[in-house]
Amino acid sequence: MSVWVFYISTLVIYFGVDLLAGIALNLQFGYAGVVNFGFIVFQAAGAYMAAVVVLGPSGGVASFQQYIFGSRLPFPLDLVAAAVAGAVVSLVIGLFSLRRMRRDYQAAVLLIVSLIALQVVSADVPLFNGSNGLTGVTWPLGQIVGVTATGAPVIYAAWTLAIAAIVFAAVYWLSKSPWGRSLRAMRDHEDAASAMGLNITSLRLQVFVIGGAIAGLSGGLLVEYIGAWSPGAWGYAETFVIFTAIFVGGVGNYRGVIVGVLLVPVIFLELPRFLPAVGYPGLIDSLQWVTIGLAWMLCLLFRPRGILPEKRMEVTKPAGVPGPAVVPSEGGA
């Protein structure tokens, strides 16, 4: 197998995973106006969960890595567990962070959650093997078929894309449904939305948990491919790659999300691998983050609604509706 096949497949897999994340974040931020600055935590929850239910029982302190919940779940329970982990962590965090609170406080609280979760998981070794993280994660579905994820990257890429496509369709449908419209109302004016009978708290929690489940799923898909997961993979800044992607593409616009997810993570984070090594090892990584930060700021400055803005849902007057002439008149005052 050529290096190129491997490389392209890997890019496609990353694209699928980032697309899932982008959809989830777009539902939360673009539609519901929930600013989830801790998004990566939910992806990490899914990744850790998928890892520990694939790795089998933990060998404890004696083994080279220790973790909780060690077991060996068959496909598709591994991915279900990942999604459930994302959803449950979202529910718990959402219950206290999504209360009626200033939006900037809410965002700050979620950012803080992200920073602190990272510290805790790094420091508490028995949980998920601390800062060394977990390795040796395999692909349960691949075992059934008889391949490994890295051995058959094309298959894994197709599998990732299939899942991303299904989730994309579901979320697309949901967000164009009356429920999605209610989310937008909440985003535009919370007080008015609740004065029009919408239960803000529950809408926000719903969108938070749905997004969390998708994030968890994306984490599960990622870890079963790369085989390892550690605090290095989910620094708070990772959230902002996805945010930048939907900023660049277009907030609230799905085509925009696809464009953004293609552009930002792939171009900014993957293409530089082709660059000749300059400076000390790690310099390019740091500079990528600087670029993400700059792209983020430039987007806010020049194109706050992205390259492709939200689409207007136009309606025309149906024929069945009576025009002014046929209004039944019963005489007024």
Binding site: G282, S286, L287, V290, L294, M297, P304
Partner: peptide
């Protein structure tokens, strides 16, 4: 106001990782 907060966040990415690259991590 709210977007201002997001701007400061972008700034913090730029500064942090700028410092990371200068300080060789």
């Amino acid at each position: 106001l709210f977007e201002m907060m997001m701007v400061t966040l972008g700034l913090s990415l730029v500064i942090d990782y700028g410092l990371q690259s200068i300080s060789q991590n």
